[in-house]
Design a protein around this nucleic acid. Structure first.
Lengths: 135, 135
DNA sequence: AAAATAGATTGCGTAATGCAAGTGACCCGT
DNA sequence: ACGGGTCACTTGCATTACGCAATCTATTTT
């Protein structure tokens, strides 16, 4: 299984952040509230690029920033990420409002399509609103 | 997200083995070919029980063996496990035969139902046949 | 009773992780 | 054009987790 890549605490969290939260830069990942260390983040981003899940390019307009994006292989993780999110929401009271979760569970395929659409359009708008801590 | 539990190399592999391969005992997990160490396996099984994903009981007929089974919370991981499997199969040539993968991708919900059915019936028959190494 | 098996624990060396500080490139206001 | 700040990392170091082999207890088999 894919656990050579995702068999750690952070990789999937990074993929989710770029996928549904619209995060793009090192700082955004760092300050996302999960508490990843900068050295580990750098190493994970490198691995995700090496695995063909993320690509990186300098942001136009600011030569310091590096803009991370999903590849096709990366967005194809959307169903898995969504399922894990739904499972989490089902068994951990801390996540999103039940109504939102309910709606998502019923519209699974539609939400996946929406993630794909925004990816293809390079639209960084988060698919999920921010409800406190939607971990 | 659920990565306090699954943010490691083994937990999800164990869940998958008990879910689709019908593994039940310490030895089966140990010898499943992934190469987990016995101390780590013991610790993961403990954590998965503590997380309410597995239950354990002595096997009737052999008081040495301990029979691990999924809880409801555990089988509810079936969609996520299946999605990860399908994603793996899509991008790693080493997994199952393409025809099988194709069929599974088209019958996702049906396969999840089958996993649930066998769980409810306590039927340990593997949902997936063993193709060499179906990791 | 002795040997074997199952689940798990212990000790130990190595690898991964967390944390704080530092580096070099780039941007921005003066 | 200079100084300060930001950004994406690196580095050094202490702590933790992991892999591996040996060992332990309980139970089953012969």
């Amino acid at each position: 299984m894919a656990l050579e890549i995702f068999g750690d605490r952070w990789s999937l969290l990074i993929v989710r952040d770029v996928m549904v939260r619209g995060y793009r830069t090192f700082q955004e990942f760092l300050q996302s509230g999960e508490g990843i260390a900068s050295n580990v983040l750098a190493e994970r981003l490198k691995r995700l690029r090496a695995a063909g899940i993320l690509t990186a390019q300098r942001a136009d307009g600011d030569g310091r920033k590096i803009c991370y994006q999903l590849t096709q292989k990366g967005v194809d993780l959307a169903p898995a990420v969504l399922d894990i999110f739904l499972w989490s929401a089902m068994y951990e009271p801390t996540a999103a409002p039940p109504a939102v979760v309910e709606r998502m569970a019923h519209n699974r395929e539609q939400i996946v399509q929406e993630v794909r659409r925004r990816w293809a359009a390079k639209d960084p708008t988060p698919v999920l609103p921010r409800f406190g801590d939607a971990r």
